[in-house]
Design a protein around this nucleic acid. Structure first.
Length: 373
DNA sequence: AACGCGGGGGC
DNA sequence: GCCCCAGCGTT
């Protein structure tokens, strides 16, 4: 199957040469005003690009504003401690991004004397900077003609050029990358790249694209065939894994028992209530909880919360534990209630904390039990 | 080359 | 409910 537009070759070439100019003109006339648009500081651009990895603009905006207020320069970020960095990222997800961004700031400070590198190879060596972020930084901040390929670009190019195949697989991926490379102009590559992404975000939508508003609908293979919905080809969905989490709320003497998640696995270094994760719903959860944290008595069910982590669907039950005997505390700490809001929680446990920790010292403090100290 | 990783928004 | 999102690092 040929991957090219439905027009003749000469017609196709003519339309392709007009593609960049029409797209740029559209972008300059009607792009959104975003907090990082028009910014020249490479650090600020890096922050925005890392936040925008797999995260929608709408979600990123408030985080970006707060972040730049708290860490206005590369140095302030480099000097910050990890807890504060994670707190600023709390709720944004993919928490590894925050730690890699932190590491990148420290690397620029320590290895490049605080001067942000401008050559692509050095930019690529920064933690958390992959092919996309490299191209975005290089083109937007430094004017290098490097092609960005993100979800928006994949959708626009597969539709316009009628590129078949699942984009995450090599044949289609290679063709998309090559197409993007051919299109990116020497002049204003940063604007062009942003224009391509803006088109994908505002016009060439995953479902119900607004083709009548599209500046480049002439020449679009999918539009010509009415086949917008077939591009890009979807990969088979991943199986959903169901899990059941049981968390305990233990409060005593104005302190709450909290755990910090370890390295590796998900949501590294974030805080949560002590909990166990089981593959099945079970009334015997407390036995598992006991072997992990300590003996418990007189539990009171408080609430149920459903949430998801990638392809895991988790039903989370929170139980108040009135009597608790600690004998294992691998990663658990007694945290003063006033300190809990300052810690970075996972989103699900943050919801529990906001609901059950505020003013909790005035409720039912758990009682000492047995020889617990 | 495939997989794991968050959370929210839109329909 | 399901799909998607300005991807990256690891295996």
């Amino acid at each position: 199957m040929e991957n090219r537009p439905a027009q003749t070759d000469s017609e196709s070439r003519r339309l392709q040469s007009a593609f960049s100019e029409l797209l740029l003109a559209w972008y300059r006339a009607s792009c959104r005003k975003l907090p990082w648009r028009g910014v020249e500081d490479p650090y600020a651009i890096l922050v925005s690009e890392v936040m925008l990895q797999q995260t929608q603009v709408r979600t990123v905006i408030p985080y970006y504003e707060r972040w730049m207020k708290r860490f206005p320069t590369l140095e302030t970020l480099a000097e910050a401690d990890e807890g504060e960095v994670l707190k600023a990222w709390e709720g944004l997800g993919y928490y590894r991004r925050a730690r890699l961004l932190h590491a990148a700031a420290q690397m620029v400070t320590s290895e490049f004397g605080g001067r942000f590198p401008s050559d692509p190879e050095t930019i690529a060596s920064l933690p958390g900077v992959g092919p996309y972020t490299l191209a975005a930084l290089a083109s937007i901040a430094f004017g290098h003609a490097m092609p960005v390929v993100d979800g928006n670009v994949i959708r626009v190019l597969t539709r316009w050029f009628g590129i078949r195949g699942v984009p995450s697989r090599l044949p289609a991926r290679r063709e998309i990358a090559e197409t993007a490379r051919r299109l990116v102009p020497r002049e204003a590559p940063g604007d062009f790249n942003q224009a391509l992404m803006e088109l994908g975000a505002m016009v060439c939508l995953p479902r119900r694209p607004c083709c009548l508003l599209c500046p480049v609908r002439r020449g679009c293979a999918a539009y010509a065939e009415g086949a917008q919905a077939r591009f890009p080809e979807a990969a088979p969905p991943k199986a959903v894994i169901r899990q059941f989490e049981y968390a305990g709320l233990v409060i005593r003497e104005g302190k709450v028992l909290l755990c910090r998640r370890g390295d590796g696995g998900r949501m590294e270094r974030l805080w949560q209530f002590p909990s166990v994760l089981l593959p099945k719903e079970s009334k015997k959860w407390s036995a598992r909880w006991k072997s992990k944290y300590g003996a418990l008595k007189e539990t009171v069910p408080l609430t149920v919360l459903n949430y998801s982590v990638t392809n895991h669907r988790i039903r989370l039950e929170l139980h108040q534990i009135e009597k608790f005997q600690r004998y294992k505390l691998p990663s658990a700490h007694w945290v003063p209630l006033a300190e809990a809001p300052k810690l970075a929680f996972t989103a699900a446990h943050r919801k529990l904390a906001d609901r059950f920790l505020t003013g909790a010292d005035r409720l039912h403090p758990a009682e000492p039990w047995k020889n617990d100290r």
